[in-house]
Amino acid sequence: MTGGIRGPGGRVRRARRALLTRLATRCLVTAMALPQTLLGLLEPAPRHGYDLKREYDARFGEQRPVKSAQVYATLGRLLRDGDITVVGTERVDGPDRTSYALSAEGVTHLERWLAEPEPSTAHLQSEVYVKVVLALRSGRPAEQILDAQRDAHLGVMRGLTARKRGADLPTTLACDFTLFHLEADLRWIEHTAARLHRLAEELS
């Protein structure tokens, strides 16, 4: 496999264990992946903050509107962590605008995030959807993102199915709750996988 989407088995296994732990405690975290998303938007070319917000809103804003302050705060955090660098400042009819670019470290972080399957959450598809769009925009194999996600989900489902064996009814029903949600996610993944080609065409 190329593209570094699938990491070494150990890492995936760790992720799976973590995921299972989270699921078992039924602590469904809603992770807003704004930093990684900004990294992805920055990847093609340097941008200033306002541009980034505009593109973010155009692409994903319908589902999760973002405030300018949030964007600038996140950019500041990314700059501090060394994921992005300042490449210039310009002034056009108003305030100064700073342009940012992705650093080598930023690319590594972005790729790791892309490669890592998401835990099952209520808003999972949004998360995976962002990954697929970004991968398509950057010419990365988006199919593998879906495959990895499917494998991860199936693994979780197998685990849950195994847990159900001989379990009491509350546990069984709790597992079933997650199983059915996972199944819905997997259906969405199948539908998306079947139409990746058209999605790529419409995005370009």
Binding site: L154, L160, E183
Partner: peptide, 13 residues
Amino acid sequence: ETRVAAYADRSVV
């Protein structure tokens, strides 16, 4: 059906 596949030790697509 993925829920049926979950009874397997391994799945291939």
